[in-house]
Simulated assay, not measured.
Amino acid sequence: MHDTTDPLDALPDDVAAAAFRRLVRHLRHRHDAQNIELMGLAGFCRNCLADWIRDAGYEGDKAEARALIHGMPMDEWKATRQSEASEEQIARMQASIAKNAADLR
Protein backbone atom coordinates (compact mmCIF):
# COMPACT_ATOMS: atom_id res chain seq x y z
CA MET A 1 0.00 0.00 0.00
CA HIS A 2 1.27 3.45 -0.89
CA ASP A 3 1.88 5.78 2.05
CA THR A 4 0.55 9.22 1.07
CA THR A 5 2.49 10.81 3.93
CA ASP A 6 5.85 9.70 2.55
CA PRO A 7 8.16 12.77 2.41
CA LEU A 8 9.61 11.34 -0.80
CA ASP A 9 6.42 12.45 -2.54
CA ALA A 10 7.26 16.06 -1.65
CA LEU A 11 10.63 15.84 -3.40
CA PRO A 12 10.56 18.16 -6.42
CA ASP A 13 10.43 16.27 -9.71
CA ASP A 14 13.57 17.95 -11.04
CA VAL A 15 15.54 16.83 -7.97
CA ALA A 16 14.16 13.29 -8.20
CA ALA A 17 14.94 13.17 -11.92
CA ALA A 18 18.53 14.34 -11.34
CA ALA A 19 19.03 11.69 -8.65
CA PHE A 20 17.56 9.01 -10.92
CA ARG A 21 19.88 9.98 -13.80
CA ARG A 22 22.86 9.90 -11.42
CA LEU A 23 21.84 6.40 -10.24
CA VAL A 24 21.56 5.14 -13.83
CA ARG A 25 24.90 6.66 -14.83
CA HIS A 26 26.49 5.13 -11.72
CA LEU A 27 25.13 1.70 -12.67
CA ARG A 28 26.40 2.15 -16.23
CA HIS A 29 29.86 2.92 -14.84
CA ARG A 30 29.73 0.03 -12.36
CA HIS A 31 28.99 -2.66 -14.92
CA ASP A 32 30.95 -5.00 -12.65
CA ALA A 33 27.89 -4.99 -10.36
CA GLN A 34 25.96 -7.70 -12.16
CA ASN A 35 22.16 -7.52 -12.41
CA ILE A 36 21.84 -10.85 -10.61
CA GLU A 37 23.91 -9.48 -7.72
CA LEU A 38 21.74 -6.38 -7.54
CA MET A 39 18.64 -8.58 -7.51
CA GLY A 40 20.12 -10.77 -4.78
CA LEU A 41 21.02 -7.84 -2.54
CA ALA A 42 18.42 -5.20 -3.27
CA GLY A 43 15.61 -6.94 -5.12
CA PHE A 44 15.93 -4.78 -8.22
CA CYS A 45 18.32 -4.38 -11.14
CA ARG A 46 18.83 -2.37 -14.29
CA ASN A 47 16.06 -4.31 -16.05
CA CYS A 48 13.68 -3.40 -13.22
CA LEU A 49 14.55 0.28 -13.71
CA ALA A 50 13.72 -0.13 -17.40
CA ASP A 51 10.35 -1.66 -16.46
CA TRP A 52 9.71 1.12 -13.94
CA ILE A 53 10.29 3.91 -16.46
CA ARG A 54 7.79 2.20 -18.76
CA ASP A 55 5.33 1.94 -15.86
CA ALA A 56 5.86 5.67 -15.27
CA GLY A 57 4.94 6.54 -18.86
CA TYR A 58 8.05 6.06 -21.02
CA GLU A 59 6.63 5.32 -24.46
CA GLY A 60 9.48 3.17 -25.75
CA ASP A 61 9.18 -0.59 -25.85
CA LYS A 62 10.97 -2.95 -23.48
CA ALA A 63 14.11 -3.13 -25.64
CA GLU A 64 14.31 0.66 -25.94
CA ALA A 65 13.84 1.10 -22.18
CA ARG A 66 16.58 -1.41 -21.42
CA ALA A 67 18.95 0.24 -23.92
CA LEU A 68 18.26 3.59 -22.28
CA ILE A 69 19.10 2.27 -18.81
CA HIS A 70 22.04 0.07 -19.87
CA GLY A 71 23.47 2.70 -22.21
CA MET A 72 23.54 0.18 -25.05
CA PRO A 73 21.31 -2.47 -26.64
CA MET A 74 20.63 -5.45 -24.37
CA ASP A 75 22.38 -7.92 -26.69
CA GLU A 76 25.54 -5.80 -26.55
CA TRP A 77 25.25 -5.54 -22.75
CA LYS A 78 24.96 -9.31 -22.39
CA ALA A 79 27.89 -9.93 -24.73
CA THR A 80 30.25 -7.39 -23.16
CA ARG A 81 29.16 -6.96 -19.54
CA GLN A 82 27.15 -9.92 -18.26
CA SER A 83 28.83 -12.95 -16.77
CA GLU A 84 27.39 -16.40 -16.11
CA ALA A 85 25.34 -16.57 -12.90
CA SER A 86 26.39 -19.00 -10.21
CA GLU A 87 23.94 -21.26 -8.38
CA GLU A 88 24.54 -19.18 -5.24
CA GLN A 89 23.70 -15.93 -7.07
CA ILE A 90 20.53 -17.47 -8.46
CA ALA A 91 19.47 -18.69 -5.01
CA ARG A 92 20.08 -15.24 -3.46
CA MET A 93 18.11 -13.61 -6.28
CA GLN A 94 15.18 -15.98 -5.78
CA ALA A 95 15.15 -15.33 -2.02
CA SER A 96 15.28 -11.60 -2.63
CA ILE A 97 12.43 -11.72 -5.14
CA ALA A 98 10.32 -13.47 -2.50
CA LYS A 99 10.90 -10.46 -0.23
CA ASN A 100 9.50 -8.21 -2.95
CA ALA A 101 6.02 -9.70 -2.50
CA ALA A 102 4.86 -6.51 -0.77
CA ASP A 103 3.72 -3.82 -3.19
CA LEU A 104 5.96 -0.77 -2.69
CA ARG A 105 4.17 1.53 -5.11
Score class of each variant (00 low, 15 high):
Gln94Ser: 09
Arg46Glu: 00
Ala85Leu: 04
Arg81Tyr: 04
Gln94Val: 06
His26Asn: 06
Arg22Met: 04
Leu23His: 06
Pro73Val: 11
Ala50His: 03
Cys45Leu: 00
Leu104Met: 12
Asp75Val: 08
Ile36Thr: 02
His70Leu: 07
His31Met: 02
Ile36Asn: 02
Asp3Cys: 06
Met1Val: 06
Gly57Met: 08
Asp32Thr: 13
Ser96Phe: 06
Ser96Val: 07
Gly60Val: 01
Thr5Met: 09
Asn47Met: 11
Phe20Tyr: 15
Thr80Trp: 05
Val24Cys: 08
Glu87Ala: 08
Ala85Ser: 12
Asp55Leu: 13
Lys62Asn: 09
Ala95Lys: 15
Leu8Cys: 04
Asp9Gly: 08
Gly57Asp: 05
Arg54Trp: 01
Ala19Pro: 05
Lys62His: 11
Ile53Cys: 00
Asp9Pro: 04
Glu88Met: 02
Met1Glu: 10
Lys99Trp: 11
Lys99Glu: 15
Leu11Thr: 11
Asn47Glu: 11
Glu84His: 14
Asp32Leu: 08
Met1Asn: 13
Ile90Glu: 14
Glu84Asp: 08
Ala19Cys: 09
Asp14Val: 09
Leu11Lys: 00
Ile69Lys: 10
Leu8Met: 05
Gln82Ser: 08
Gly40Ile: 07
Glu87Lys: 13
Arg92Val: 00
Asp51Phe: 01
Ser96Glu: 07
Ile97His: 15
Ala19Gln: 05
Arg25Gln: 08
Asn100Trp: 10
Ala65Asp: 01
Arg54Tyr: 06
Asp9Phe: 15
His31Ala: 12
Met1Gln: 14
Met39Ala: 12
Leu49Lys: 00
Ala67Leu: 01
Met1Asp: 14
Arg66Asn: 11
Gly60Ile: 08
Asn100Gln: 14
Ala63Phe: 05
Ala79Leu: 14
Leu49Ser: 03
Phe20Thr: 04
Met74Tyr: 15
Gln94Ile: 05
Gly71His: 09
Met93Phe: 00
Ala33Phe: 04
Ser86Arg: 07
Ser83Asp: 05
Phe20Asn: 09
Arg25Met: 04
Ala98His: 06
Asp103Gln: 12
Arg22Leu: 05
Asp9Met: 12
Ala18Pro: 05
Arg54Ser: 05
